[in-house]
Amino acid sequence: MIVFDRVSKKYGSRDALSELSFELKTGEFAFLTGHSGAGKSTLLKLVMLIERATRGQVWVKGQNLTQLRDRQIPYLRRDIGVVFQNHQLLADRNVFDNVALPLQIAGLRGREIGRRVRAALDKVDLLDREKQFPISLSGGEQQRVGIARAVVNKPSLVLADEPTGNLDPELSAEVMKLFLQFNQVGVTVLIASHDIALIRAMGRRVLGLSEGKLVHDDILSVSRPAASNPATFQD
């Protein structure tokens, strides 16, 4: 699903990523962790083609992103669901219209949009909130709307950048449960997170970044607390 082959990304003279290689297979569920500035966001941006790699090759769904033209980028993004820490919901649209956005962009018709939006909202248990505006929702609900929007187009890959960053442990666990459910039906999930406790509880593959390098690639779980040096991932 995602292949990084000796990927480097420079911002000016600073190396955000250097010689990073890893592969995330289809259907995998992995966490991406590391300090602020370790390169988590940069990695996600390279997958989304928000940024382009300075060196090396990035493959997403069999497509070499290095060779992908700018005008093909939208079509790549349509098959990637993204969840942001700050939700990135549009304040002037209600929940329904926020979730419908990717479908409208993909050019679906009204009836099909309605069907899929409700299905996605149902999935995150917000079906009764479709007419409300994001401002009237709680943080956890807003994040769930963001998740509904990310999956409404049935992407095969879901990326999440600190999806539980602003949530309390209980809500975080709920959000993670959602991601797990998507993963169970075949969606590849990559979550950037600081939340070591949560990551441990999940017992999934963890990619640890430090100063732009991959320093850890293993399953981190409660059963294996000493799998690596946790200090590497914690702020």
Binding site: M1, K25, T26, G27, E28, F29, K61, G62, Q63, R115, R116, R118, A119, A120, D122, K123, K154, S156, F182, Q184, V185, G186, V187
Partner: peptide
Amino acid sequence: KTESFLSRHANKPASRDSKSTRSQRTN
């Protein structure tokens, strides 16, 4: 609705690590 929402994903191989699965998905 939930069922239909999941219907496409249900067709997807849920296996995590088979190489052939990946190529099928991508190609």
